[in-house]
Simulated assay, not measured.
Amino acid sequence: MSTAPSQTALNTRSEKTPPGEDRHFVTALARGLEVLACFRSGTRVLSNQELAERCRLPKSTVSRLTMTLVRLGYLTHDEESGKYKIGMATLSLGVGMLAKLDIRQVARPYMQELADFSQAMVSLGVRDRLSMLYIENCRSQAALTLSLDVGARIPIVTSSMGRGYLAIATAAERREIAERLGELDAWSQKDILNGIEKAVVEHQTLGITTSFGDWQKDVNAIAVGFQLSKNQPIMVITCGAPSFTVSKEFLLNDVRPRLLETVEKIRTAMGH
């Protein structure tokens, strides 16, 4: 692997105008959306203080935002606890979005076929800010598979799905992601760049990306990122399972060619 990841994986600087300097950028709207994004899978209720800490905003600002979102139906407020949870208006947006993703219906039988062969979980995901969002899952009949469901989010740097995305994203987009992750102090800059470099190199040499204990020490997974057209978002299909049920050798030698074939079947079925 290259000893200079920033040159291989991040060889282009982003020239995007910072949001705060763009006269078309609506800061209040962006902040409201960031508040909604805090309610991730597994997080059902949050207080204004918790939201303020996650969004890095003053509590007074968050209070005004949550009050507005409650009035519009995007959040609901529990008087007893003083906390907030997702409202029906937000849920309807998500349901509407998923219903329009025809690829879910097209991909499902091919994904299920791969899940049955591998005795693992096969998932379809897209990027959501600095995470990967599961939009479809297929499980085998194996007694033990991963417990992630549609709507779950996983890290973009350490997971095979995230690396599948990074591998085919533009260099400018990879740089932007690396910079934003660095600001969060979730990983060291070296770990971030190494994760991106690993994704790019594996995609070039194997056609897939891997995560063997990198995201969770007891999980093995491989993934393929693809884009049906330039006007559509990058999507990723991943196949993973607990490491004590599926070895990395099995994933690389037996599952990898079938995963690549699954993506080609989906491309063909979608008319690409």
Results as ranks from 00 to 15, higher is better:
232 Q>G: 04
4 A>T: 15
20 G>S: 10
205 T>V: 07
14 S>A: 10
205 T>W: 00
149 D>V: 08
53 E>C: 00
185 D>T: 06
197 E>D: 15
81 S>H: 13
218 D>H: 13
168 I>A: 10
132 M>C: 09
262 T>L: 03
145 T>K: 05
170 T>Y: 01
107 A>I: 05
257 P>E: 04
127 R>F: 04
119 Q>D: 09
51 L>K: 08
210 T>C: 09
65 L>Y: 11
178 A>I: 00
47 S>W: 11
181 L>Q: 04
202 E>M: 08
68 T>W: 06
152 A>N: 14
59 K>L: 09
255 V>S: 11
76 T>L: 09
215 W>I: 06
34 E>I: 06
133 L>H: 06
43 T>A: 03
54 R>V: 03
194 N>Y: 02
106 V>T: 10
254 D>R: 11
113 E>K: 01
44 R>V: 11
144 L>Y: 12
58 P>V: 04
145 T>W: 03
117 F>D: 05
234 I>R: 08
128 D>N: 02
15 E>C: 13
157 V>T: 04
23 R>D: 12
92 S>N: 12
113 E>H: 06
127 R>Y: 01
147 S>H: 15
40 R>T: 10
236 V>D: 05
16 K>A: 15
163 R>Y: 02
265 K>S: 05
183 E>I: 03
39 F>W: 03
56 R>K: 15
141 Q>C: 05
270 M>A: 08
150 V>W: 00
232 Q>Y: 07
1 M>Q: 08
118 S>H: 06
130 L>N: 12
242 P>N: 13
73 G>K: 06
43 T>M: 06
65 L>A: 02
78 D>F: 02
136 E>M: 07
93 L>C: 13
160 S>V: 07
133 L>E: 04
147 S>C: 10
257 P>N: 07
177 I>L: 13
160 S>C: 15
1 M>S: 13
3 T>H: 07
145 T>P: 09
88 M>Y: 09
129 R>Y: 03
267 R>D: 07
124 L>D: 00
232 Q>R: 13
87 G>V: 05
268 T>Y: 11
224 V>K: 12
56 R>P: 00
7 Q>S: 07
175 R>K: 13
235 M>L: 14
19 P>A: 02
195 G>S: 09
257 P>H: 10
235 M>K: 09
25 F>Q: 05
79 E>N: 08
96 G>S: 06
41 S>F: 09
254 D>M: 08
35 V>E: 03
187 W>M: 13
83 K>E: 15
111 M>E: 01
67 M>Q: 14
94 G>C: 02
253 N>Q: 15
94 G>S: 11
48 N>I: 11
130 L>E: 12
22 D>E: 08
10 L>T: 02
211 S>F: 00
104 R>F: 00
204 Q>A: 15
183 E>V: 00
68 T>F: 14
31 R>F: 11
96 G>A: 04
164 G>N: 02
158 T>P: 03
100 K>C: 09
260 L>K: 11
256 R>L: 01
18 P>Y: 03
55 C>S: 12
269 A>T: 03
6 S>K: 12
42 G>I: 01
230 K>R: 12
162 G>Y: 01
15 E>A: 10
238 T>L: 03
189 Q>L: 08
233 P>A: 09
55 C>N: 05
247 S>I: 05
139 R>Q: 13
220 N>C: 14
160 S>T: 05
51 L>E: 10
223 A>E: 03
122 V>P: 10
81 S>D: 07
198 K>T: 10
186 A>D: 14
225 G>Q: 14
216 Q>S: 12
